[in-house]
């Protein structure tokens, strides 16, 4: 018997909202959006946690500007606060080394991290999902009770085709979808809005492609002033935190 299963939700039970940012599709902006959401929530005085669920390619720590922080032990492990966000990631333990894992081990890793992480009294938890619908995504969908999914896509037929697979899976499992966010728009297009309408999903709006963000990765103060962040902040207040 796996003793971790009974405490995973215990650890999360006082959190008001658990928002997992996913897509199915890779490279559409899940990590930058989830990290920015966490930063914006804590800027709005919400105690916020961020969990990087991407074990093979974690990147939230780069956006957040993590240095050599390490969790502290206290009847479990406590995520360090980085730029006010309580942050947990496999990055603390692997640093920049590759982590070659196969199926069952991904599940084990997921359970271990959730069983031992003490989030304290956070109100919001943002989860950055990896691309695909592999083990960590399935574990998240199966084991975490109180969750809502925010879907990110680019305005591309190819992206939407993969996104649609995740949407079908979520609908099948009756998992609440907050809405679909169109990212990296470069020209007017209504395919995402149409997709949302046809599938009865809330269309959260779009974020234009912002050439400036690359140079501010890790420079939080400048990053928070970019158009990308301002756009997302508006969406957060109007469509997510109603």
């Amino acid at each position: 018997m796996d003793p971790r299963l009974s405490i995973i939700n215990e650890r999360l039970k006082n959190i008001e909202r658990i928002i997992a940012v996913g897509s199915g599709k890779g490279g559409v902006g899940k990590s930058i959006i989830s990290t920015t959401l966490a930063l914006l929530l804590s800027k709005n005085n919400k105690l916020t946690g961020l969990f990087d669920l991407d074990f093979q390619g974690p990147t939230c720590h780069l956006i957040l500007g993590a240095k050599d922080e390490f969790p502290t032990e206290e009847k479990g492990i406590k995520p360090p606060q980085i730029n006010s966000v309580y942050f947990m990631s496999i990055y603390y333990f692997t640093r920049d080394n590759p982590l070659p894992l196969r199926g069952w081990e991904v599940t084990n890793l997921f359970r271990e991290l959730l069983a031992i992480t003490r989030w304290d009294n956070i109100e919001y938890l943002i989860i950055d999902m990896p691309p695909g619908v592999g083990d960590e995504v399935l574990e998240l969908l199966k084991l975490i009770n109180k969750k809502e999914i925010l879907i990110v896509t680019t305005p591309s037929i190819l992206s939407l085709n993969t996104v649609d697979k995740l949407v079908k899976l979520l609908k099948n499992l009756n998992i609440p979808i907050i809405g679909i966010l169109e990212n990296m728009r470069v020209q007017p297009s209504d395919i995402v809005k149409k997709y949302a309408l046809e599938n009865k999903i809330n269309y959260l709006g779009y974020i234009p492609f912002d050439y400036s963000i690359e140079k501010y990765i890790g420079e939080i103060n400048l990053f928070m002033k970019t158009k990308f962040v301002l756009n997302l902040e508006k969406i957060l207040h109007e469509k997510i935190l109603f």
């Binding site: 018997m1 003793p3 971790r4 299963l5 405490i7 009847k75 003490r118």
Partner: peptide
């Protein structure tokens, strides 16, 4: 001291079972 977290899981599982 994260042994505590694991011990909690053990006790809670036994209790539920």
């Amino acid at each position: 001291m994260h042994e505590w977290a694991l011990a909690e899981g053990v006790i809670k599982t036994i209790k539920e079972y």
